[in-house]
Design a protein around this nucleic acid. Structure first.
Lengths: 240, 240
DNA sequence: AATTAAAATTGGTACGTTCCTTTTTTAAAA
DNA sequence: TTTTAAAAAAGGAACGTACCAATTTTAATT
């Protein structure tokens, strides 16, 4: 992972920032960094850009490169790392994966909405995968996922009890690296209340969207209903 | 806005994509684009990178540059443009700004939580700005914002009835270009129900976070409670 | 017709140079 | 001491070159 020049610079800077090396929250200028790391200014720029995207630092022309003070205070929130964008990986507690209970697993023709989302022809089949995820007897998410049969013809219930995306990656060399999600809230229904142990007035958070592979193929349409206390989506936005 | 080379390329490509010029969802390769636009490959790369960040296109080494089919289907969702990251600008309906009703406006010492979020010393003062936003008699958001007095000492109730950030930009040359938000859901309380016209079982969406200037100064801590039918946060995530 | 190997295509990485724009610092002037 | 103007510092933009790595296409072979 460290054989690329700019990756090396990223790692080094990340480490230095976390160690508090830049007490005044100001980094050396790009030309100096280039000298220090013995790389070109272009490579420094590429590395810094990556850190900017993550919200760790920001730059101001004429002034310099600065550490985002929010990063230091909210470091846990920034750890949205991991190899893919699956839910299993999004939800971790001290590195522990949640328990998964399979509620349903069947094959059916794609409904129009699903058809469109996954770019399928009329009549094509999808798996419907219903799962409940929990941490220590506290269920927090009902997941209803649809995956085209033709993309993973050999799917079994066993694979589904674990991380589907890990399986795809390790056995099929398919990487799920993109997602398009809509986040909203909704009144809880009877099923939500039962499965997530909610009172009738307590709502659910809803995350709905499409996951797709590094080749741009939509691989899953997922509708997730979360216990409202467990849905916390953090987002860092920078314009310009 | 179009005097920069890569901006010109971005605009041109955006237009061509929206016009459906690339029926097979595949763009010409970088070297060809460079020739077509009479710019260097580096500039093409910079432009394409920007479109990738927005989720419009994606690239695959050895294969080419492709349009994200989701972009074409969800174009409205992608229009998160605008000059800053204020709420006034986030919520628009046919280009119309929402109505703003000022519920409260006062100065008080920052509570510990606010103090920390805005990097203030103990005892420093903040404005508390409470507003209700609506579209055509349908209120959709209760906003509780805190702004350090020292940053905008001359704030008046009149400015608050409009876009605070526009005022800062035009009169003070302060640009609010970054935000760090947490999105969640909550049971609605009495006030929510009254102001947002909600039934007791209907929930609110919650967006809470910090806005800050292009100099990294936190300028507002904001707590927003939204009518659950009006909170739809769209997010495109790409790893690697 | 299917398989395999070579070649071409295409994006990725890395370095370097030149000049511009904004901001900050310094020095001079009032 | 304050104000103002010049200089320095710092990031931004744009171009270009060379080579690498993954993918696709093409041609040759079986």
């Amino acid at each position: 992972m460290a054989d690329l020049v700019y990756q090396r610079v990223i790692s080094a800077l990340q480490q230095q920032i976390n160690q508090g090396k830049f007490a005044d929250l100001k980094l050396p200028n790009e030309r100096v960094l280039a000298e220090e790391f013995n790389v070109s200014r272009s490579s420094v720029k590429k590395a810094l850009n990556s850190l900017i995207q993550r919200g760790m630092i920001f730059q101001k022309q004429g002034a310099g490169t600065f550490i985002n003070p929010l990063y230091l205070k909210n470091r846990p929130m920034y750890n949205i790392s991991g190899d893919n964008v699956g839910v299993t990986d999004m939800y971790q507690k001290d590195g522990q994966h949640p328990d998964i209970q399979v509620l349903g697993f069947k094959v059916l023709p794609a409904k129009p909405e699903i058809q469109e989302a996954l770019f399928l022809e009329p009549g094509e089949f999808v798996y419907e995968i219903q799962r409940l995820r929990a941490f220590d007897d506290q269920p927090f998410m009902i997941e209803d996922g649809f995956v085209p049969v033709k993309l993973v013809p050999d799917l079994t219930e066993k694979m589904i009890a674990g991380s589907l995306y890990n399986y795809l990656q390790e056995s099929r060399n398919i990487f799920v690296t993109r997602s398009f999600l809509t986040i909203s809230a909704d009144v809880s229904n009877k099923q939500d209340q039962k499965l997530l142990k909610l009172k009738p007035v307590e709502p659910v958070g809803v995350m709905e969207g499409i996951f797709f592979t590094d080749r741009g193929t939509p691989i899953e349409f997922s509708h997730m209903r979360l216990h409202y206390k467990f849905m916390r989506y953090n987002t860092f936005t920078a314009l310009n």
